[in-house]
């Protein structure tokens, strides 16, 4: 019996690998998805190498060069304080990707852990976790984030001040860090429930597969079963969810910054730049267009990739 099970288990990863290369082939054939991927790759390159792409600092003001239209020296013009818009958009790309990646990482970890526990153990654990997930999904995320932000940020700031006075470590004095901690924390908090649902649904369907039942009857510890069979099998739908989630986190970040509860000025963020640009877009449309187009490209590209991955990983569109 034991020998009969082992090969089946061992062949799983190989099958997985085949599945992935098939999926990649299908994805490559999907032109729209590849366009999306190309744009995202480009934005990531900009985010990484941005500082070497532009001769200007994103903070330096030049009041003699305010609101300039795009030109050779300032590719995207300058803003109302004479700062180079291209540099700010590039650094805004950094902000956007940093937020998207960190937030997605945190929420995938929280969501898939809770989803896996719920799906694998079922029963009361499932009921409680799913109830919790439903509660989170029923609170409008914008309200939730703003409530948390307005009520927790001041105490966090005070705590950091106290830590700074106590330790003298300048890390605790860093205002940008406080902003990012709040943004990461709050957006993750509203982003995890979909991951929990996806993973749970997938695990429920895999849990009753013969090879899992067999492994269980052999007394394999739960942890191993989860790690070896359940998680690898849930990755497909999770990847689809992640590509949608990255775009979603980016859009949320800019919405919060727009409302003034996200990243604070003068740190560049597309949402902040849009909110500044909207004030004068009739006179200086480039101030609004640059960040808005960057945000639009990123959000559309991620949804292209999401659709492509969905088609590639669920060829028959299994629902």
């Amino acid at each position: 019996m034991a020998t009969a099970i082992e090969p089946t288990g061992a062949s799983r990863p190989a099958e997985q690998a085949g599945l992935w290369s098939d999926a990649w082939a299908r994805l490559r054939a999907n032109r729209i998805a590849m366009v999306g991927l190309a744009f995202i790759a480009l934005l990531i390159l900009i985010a990484i190498f941005g500082p070497w792409l532009t001769p200007y600092d994103f903070l330096t003001q030049n009041l003699d060069a305010r609101n300039l239209p795009p030109s050779m020296s300032h590719w995207l013009g300058t803003d109302e304080l004479g700062r180079d818009v291209a540099s700010r958009v590039i650094y805004g790309t950094r902000t956007a990707f940093l937020v998207a990646i960190v937030v997605t990482a945190i929420s995938v970890v929280i969501g898939s852990t809770l989803g896996a526990i719920a799906g694998y153990f079922g029963g009361r654990a499932d009921a409680v976790i799913m109830w919790f997930t439903d509660v989170f999904m029923s609170v409008p995320n914008l309200l939730l984030v703003i409530v948390i932000n307005t009520s927790l940020k001041p105490p966090l700031g005070r705590w950091m001040d106290a830590m700074y006075l106590w330790s003298g470590n300048t890390l605790f004095r860093n205002t940008v860090l406080v902003d990012f901690i709040m943004v990461f924390g709050t957006i993750s908090l509203v982003m995890w429930p979909p991951y929990a649902r996806t993973v749970r649904a997938q695990i429920l369907s895999v849990r009753s597969q013969p090879y899992v039942l067999a492994a269980r009857s052999l007394g394999l510890p739960s942890r191993q079963i989860i790690l070896r069979y359940l998680i690898p099998n849930s990755i497909g739908p999770l990847v689809v969810a992640v590509s949608a989630g990255l775009g979603g986190a980016m859009v949320l970040e800019s919405a919060f910054s727009f409302l003034g509860v996200g990243v604070q000025p003068p740190t560049p963020s597309w949402g902040l730049m849009i909110s500044d640009g909207l004030r004068t877009w009739q006179q200086y449309p480039h101030l609004l267009a640059a960040p808005a187009i960057a945000l639009a490209i990123a959000s559309v590209a991620f949804s292209f990739i999401g659709d492509g991955l969905n088609d590639a990983l669920n060829p028959k569109g299994a629902k």
């Binding site: 877009w281 945000l295 639009a296 949804s303």
Partner: peptide, 18 residues
């Protein structure tokens, strides 16, 4: 649809209004 998807409400609103 994609165009509508890509414009945040906070950009579409003020521009249409003005």
């Amino acid at each position: 649809a994609l165009f509508l998807w890509a414009i945040p409400a906070y950009v579409a609103g003020p521009i249409l209004m003005v």
